[in-house]
Design a protein around this nucleic acid. Structure first.
Lengths: 214, 214, 214, 214
DNA sequence: AATGAATGAGAGTTCATTCAT
DNA sequence: GATGAATGAACTCTCATTCAT
């Protein structure tokens, strides 16, 4: 995301840390922090175990880098929600339905989410970073949009933050489901389909009653 | 040179395995499998490390016992859903709203859910057991009830399993949220309140006709 | 040397730390801190590598214990010097000559001295402890005795602390010599003999001139 | 991501090995062989770690070069003693007092001595070299001079080699003291002053008759 | 049944050494 | 010649597991 650096003749140098973080992400997401072996991370990154220490001081350091770096791609989700802010309510739901479920589907988010949930207790700072930079941003933007829609009379009264939770949760659970139960034979959920059906349900469920009350 | 230890009163023998599993549940839920230390489990159970091996052959065995034993209390949730099967649809939602959110709130489910999600990759058999005995039962019962309600014309067309997912997810996510982000300062969700609002929203959203008042 | 403790039935427990420190002293004295291998210490103590960690948290901790424990036996030297305090000067030299050279000869002091000199730079706290508890005590007691002898007119004017250094140094160097050059074929020095000759030389050299000056 | 490093001016090639040995001497003297890092040596020499291997095959090789090279400057001490050989005895002591203590004070001998003592056990060949080329030469020359003086009736009977030890030891110990205890707050010894007082004491102590004035 | 000192395989980490550039 | 990224053997340290008591 940052280092353009001088494209000198060093063959790998610049690419290495990225490759290592990528490999580490895969292993940490699969196994969790404690069960992940540096041997395996190194092997997947195609380097020796010692090479990891050229870029990261400890296993924890590498884990931190992984978790923090994993925020970046998911920021698109947050930005998408924030960008939708001022529009009418059905438009917001449409956005959530298509853009966000699409992103969740395309990016390797599932393993990361699983990893963050599983290690939050052992690495509270990272849980905090995820909350502050990503989750609370997304939930807050949605909440604000819903509050605005309520003020415009488009959405029923009710706790806006809870509405936001209601909107997002099925997508998240479908994602976690894919990581948790699909590998042992359960049928998965099609994220975009879930999103479409859920948004339709929520649109009806949250909308104020048609302008002509009995 | 070390701690004097607790007074050496004898303890009823039969209770030991249960106490151990209880202590192990707490530690596994907090740390995950690999990061959990048998030392800590033994200390919390008030027994020596060696005593664990009188009841469980390995750490994995103890973990399996924990995960399997943790299914039992949650079976109430499943049974509650199954029992509600034949009734009219709003009754079902009422049940989910009150009984299930209440159970989730009361039982120490959160840590267990986190643990299952986090370790599913490392212990697929356990993910399978949880899926087969608990999750798929609950989801299936709900799905069947929804299908029946659709057949009765009470619920709109749409994928019934997805509807079931939509119904349960916010409760699950609120639960995970409590485990993951509340400890680092985030505001929590009130499960019964979430359940009530969500069920109201879903009732309107899923109903065949605009929810007729009275 | 100290722990009487309850002579319970634990077979080894009480003796272990002492055995480990003893083995560690031998290896550290031979190799120095960094070159010493925990494998070798454990093997010499007749325990497994892991057992070291039942008693000492880290290699450094073990080293500290060794260096501190090594002070105790050498305290005899200090006490011998202090005890000699009030007597006439030739008596003091006699004491140094026989008692101290004998102790130095009998105790395994040489390796310890070598070790302290070699690691003082890497472990300043230990150098400080040795200085405060042992070396400075011994030198101070000798210095005081010399000052007193000067006041009584038995010893020539001159810096008393330097006189103390002059008195002890040949014994120390003979000790270091034994550790350093004897193993590669050099002839050693007989400590008691060195002490006797040196004390005779110093007695004459330090004494005030016979009462009748030219 | 890292340090920009020093400006890349080329450096005279021929000086390299010398600079490396100099830097290595400093680090080895400070830390000992095992605790010394080639990284640090390279950094202090202002070269890359790889460059060390252009001149020295292994760390041990470099250490050997350092220890052998460190003999050279100290040879002056030996030559000074040898040169004093034929003169009368008080002249010899005067030489030791002034020349040698001055050299010891001026040259960075202390660290080297500490290093040789500390590593003699791990590198016996080097202890041998030091003994043969330096220590035994110096001690032998002094011993010969003392034997000659005894033959001339200037010095009392007694073991000449022990007399030589008595003469040199306080200087050596004062040197070691400076390396070992002064850094942790102990008061140091002024080498020339120690030498002067000690030689005066020894002159009286060793002389055949009570030092005849004039 | 119960203990906890002891084990030892295996983990993370360091660092002398190598080699493509 | 010179670099410094990369290696891998060897180290310290951890912890599930065992066993004499």
């Amino acid at each position: 995301m940052t280092d353009p650096g001088p494209p000198k003749f060093r063959r790998r140098k610049a690419a290495r840390p990225g490759e290592i973080v990528e490999a580490a992400l895969a292993v940490f997401a699969e196994k969790g922090f404690a069960a992940a072996r540096l041997d395996e991370i190194a092997a997947r990154a195609g380097v020796s175990k010692g090479a990891l220490y050229l870029y990261f001081a400890t296993k924890e350091d590498l884990f931190r880098a992984v978790v923090e770096q994993a925020i970046a791609p998911n920021m698109q989700v947050v930005r998408a929600i924030i960008a939708a802010h001022p529009g009418p309510f059905p438009e917001l739901l449409g956005l959530v339905a298509e853009r966000i479920s699409g992103l969740m589907d395309a990016l390797p988010v599932g393993g990361v989410v699983k990893m963050v949930i599983g290690e939050a207790g052992n690495f509270p700072e990272l849980a905090r970073v995820w909350h502050e930079r990503l989750v609370s941003q997304a939930l807050g933007a949605l909440t604000d949009a819903i509050t605005a829609a309520q003020a415009r009379g488009e959405v029923k009264p009710g706790d806006a933050r809870t509405y936001a939770l209601e909107l997002i949760s099925p997508l998240l659970v479908a994602l976690i489901w894919r990581e948790t139960f699909v590998p042992v034979g359960a049928a998965g959920f099609d994220l975009p389909a879930v999103a479409r059906q859920h948004m339709a349900t929520m649109l009806t469920g949250m909308a104020t009653e048609p302008a002509a009350p009995g």
